[in-house]
């Protein structure tokens, strides 16, 4: 089983997202970075699948040179091969990103054979374009379903579950296939000490892209207007319970 996962490096802001003075990016000067959550689960899912069925996991990212950190993290939790498409701009638009990822994947497949399964996140945590996986699937001529929270593979078919109100929809997709997964599909493991050490030695291949810009262009980022509310402090210890229950009664949730 050959599986490829596309992951994006994103900043990890805390209580507030600050923006650079040119309005083009999240100000990450004091922030750590992480793998976009849906994709962290996609890597875990890929590693579990090859643990069960055999095979290898390749992880691909388009981002700044520092995105190597997210590839090494994937190595520390069990992925095997790593490819970076380096960019120097802050973020590429979705069409351009998809074109670059699509041709990089086609290149990898031309040398090493097709991937049975390609996993994306449902949407990237930062820009959230909801489309890169779909575009890549079309470019490769493969079926794709998004929003996946469960995958079973048998006899060349990926049985994929998608959450809906009150249950799941099931899709039976012939492989090779592409799936967009959501956080909650699994609980990603933490890297072991051995995994961390191995990740330092992982080799990261580089593929360049000259994909042209698409039709969506960023003007600037800004924060939504927040309603500021005065906080009413009901107490500083268990004796606050009485004031809390008064409030619950007032709101009519005690009936």
């Amino acid at each position: 089983m050959r599986i490829l996962v596309c992951v994006k490096r994103v900043p990890a802001p805390g209580s507030r997202i600050n923006i650079t003075s040119d309005g083009q990016a999240v100000d990450a000067a004091h922030l750590g970075f992480t793998t976009s959550p849906h994709e962290e689960c996609a890597v875990e899912e890929a590693v579990r699948i090859v643990e069960e069925h055999g095979g290898e996991v390749t992880v691909l990212t388009l981002g700044p040179a520092a995105a190597e950190e997210q590839l090494r993290y994937a190595a520390s939790v069990g992925a095997h091969h790593f490819v970076l498409i380096p960019i120097t701009d802050v973020d590429w638009d979705p069409q351009r990103t998809a074109a670059a990822l699509g041709s990089a994947i086609a290149g990898l497949e031309a040398t090493d054979g097709p991937f049975d399964l390609i996993l994306f996140g449902n949407e990237s945590a930062d820009s959230g374009g909801f489309q890169v996986g779909v575009r890549v699937a079309h470019a490769l001529g493969r079926p794709i379903v998004n929003g996946i929270k469960g995958i079973d593979l048998a006899d060349g078919t990926a049985s994929a579950r998608r959450e809906i109100d009150g249950g799941f929809e099931v899709y039976e997709v012939p492989m090779p296939a592409v799936l967009g997964v959501k956080e909650g599909i699994n609980l990603p493991r933490y890297p072991t000490m051995k995994g961390r050490l191995a990740s330092k030695k992982a080799e990261v291949a580089t593929v360049t892209s000259d994909a042209p810009a698409g039709g969506q262009a960023r003007v600037r980022l800004h924060r939504p207007v927040e309603q500021v509310s005065e906080t009413v402090i009901l107490g500083t210890g268990p004796e606050a319970a009485s004031a809390v229950v008064d409030l619950l009664e007032e709101l009519g949730v005690l009936s």
């Binding site: 959230g128 960023r218 003007v219 924060r223 939504p224």
Partner: peptide
């Protein structure tokens, strides 16, 4: 021209569409 959501709505992006 549009204003769209990033970060699930925690951040907004003004963008243009050609």
């Amino acid at each position: 021209s549009m204003t769209r959501m990033q970060w699930g709505g925690s951040l907004l992006e003004d963008a243009t569409l050609e």
